[in-house]
């Protein structure tokens, strides 16, 4: 990997957690380095897979939370 773009940098970039100058540097590296570009594409894909893996709590739990909220309402 290019020395100006570490994997940590790429991860921070993926999550919009980089400063402007670093962002430009990383984007340049992605544009010019096939290996980094491929890794970055995989990271985007992993991030999408993580989004697809969400699960929903039991419906009755959400209902019981709302029940608690109504029961303890100060008004």
């Amino acid at each position: 990997m290019n020395t100006i773009c570490t994997l940590n940098d790429l991860i921070a970039y993926l999550y919009n957690d980089t400063q402007l100058l670093k962002t430009v540097e990383i984007q340049k590296t992605i544009d010019n380095n096939e290996e980094v570009a491929e890794l970055y594409q995989d990271m985007i894909a992993i991030s999408k897979v993580l989004d697809q893996s969400l699960i929903t709590p039991s419906r009755c739990i959400s209902e019981s939370i709302m029940h608690y909220a109504r029961l303890t309402a100060p008004f």
Binding site: L54, T56, P57, S62, I65, M66, A69, A73
Partner: peptide, 17 residues
């Protein structure tokens, strides 16, 4: 309380997962 319900519906999957 409907506002709370909206917040729960909006975020329940991320919190529960």
């Amino acid at each position: 309380e409907n506002a709370l319900q909206k917040l729960i519906i909006r975020h329940e999957k991320k919190v529960y997962t």
